[in-house]
Simulated assay, not measured.
Amino acid sequence: MLEVKNLTKYYGDLLAVDELSFRIEEGQFATLLGPSGCGKSTTLHVIAGLIDATSGSVHLRGKEVSDVPPYERNIGLVFQHSALFPHMTVEENLRYGLKMQDFDGDHDRQIEKYLEMVQMLEHADHKPDELSGGQQRRISFARALVYEPDILLLDEPLTGLDRVLREDMRNEIRSIQQEVDVTTLHVTHDQSEALSMSDQVIVMNEGRKEQEGHPTELYEQPKTEFVAEFLGQSTKFEGELVDANTPVIRSGSREIHIETNGDTEAVAGDDISTYIRPEEIDVHPTPQANGDTNTFSGRITDVEYLGHRAELEIELDDGTKVIAFSQTSDDLSVGKEVSVQFDPDKVICV
């Protein structure tokens, strides 16, 4: 449905997007994920035709559209803010979109269908300023979908909503996308949004693609340090590969045992960065023997109770900070001596 080839965008001397390429199959929900200023919104706006690329091309359904004006690309676009016409009612906002896209079908039936889909049919005669922020977002989605675009572009559409509403809208967007079966490209800096909503995630950093793939693949098998650190929390150990056959990494005075299954090109003496996700670390309320595999003593320096779990910060003997999750905070208080343990096959190596 969508293919971006070697997309590059300069703003004067500033390189915003650097030789970016990716493709999205029909019906997929894909996300451009990265920190602010990484080029993801610029990429979306080039795809929409709102700005011109310096070089590279955009293809929809196999046809290059780089020189096609936005209104001829049959793209639905939802911005960070609702961008509804304030002087029009909800119904008039949708009808205007149908008119501008020369939609051939029954306009009344189409408006009713999509307002019902976003649960806003009873608000058809309301003006935008009579609606809550969440309701305005629903209308924005209905307006972007009502003329049945080939692809839906979402530019951080949940910005500014409170946590509960963000989660509700996140689930609803995914449900509507699957019901309509519209190819969707979503832009966000929120890792939880990207991981929970997407079939495919393209991680961007400083205008470049770091890695792309299914959310599970990116979380469990990051290929770069940036992806490992940006997607979720983790504890990082840096060290030297002692033996590629064993394999063991020496990090300071400790040895980190890892499981590579032969899937590494590193050789003895190479510097390796390892990451352990907090959910993979077991915390024992009584210190264990440091001689056990990947078992280290430390002291709890912070406990954050989050309702469904406690998040612990543990300082090891050499000052290394470890982040771990626990289902209970009982007997795990600040200052307590504990030990942490993790299995070799749970260690991520980059």
Score class of each variant (00 low, 15 high):
F103E: 01
F103N: 04
F103P: 02
D104A: 14
D104K: 14
D104R: 13
D104T: 15
G105M: 13
D106V: 10
D106C: 10
H107A: 06
H107Q: 02
D108M: 08
D108Y: 09
D108V: 13
R109I: 04
R109T: 13
Q110V: 02
I111M: 00
I111E: 05
I111A: 00
I111C: 04
I111L: 06
E112Q: 15
E112S: 12
K113D: 10
K113A: 02
K113I: 07
Y114H: 01
L115Q: 07
L115H: 04
E116I: 00
E116H: 07
E116L: 05
M117W: 03
M117C: 11
V118Q: 04
V118G: 08
V118P: 03
Q119I: 03
Q119W: 09
Q119V: 07
Q119E: 15
Q119M: 11
M120D: 10
M120C: 06
L121H: 05
L121P: 06
L121S: 01
E122Y: 08
E122T: 00
E122F: 02
H123S: 07
H123P: 02
H123F: 12
A124N: 03
D125M: 13
D125K: 15
H126Q: 12
H126K: 13
H126L: 00
K127M: 12
K127A: 05
P128F: 00
D129E: 12
D129N: 14
D129W: 06
D129M: 11
E130R: 12
E130M: 07
E130I: 08
E130Y: 05
E130N: 10
E130S: 12
L131H: 09
S132Q: 06
G133A: 09
G133P: 03
G133K: 11
G133T: 06
G133Q: 06
G134I: 00
Q135E: 14
Q136G: 11
Q136C: 06
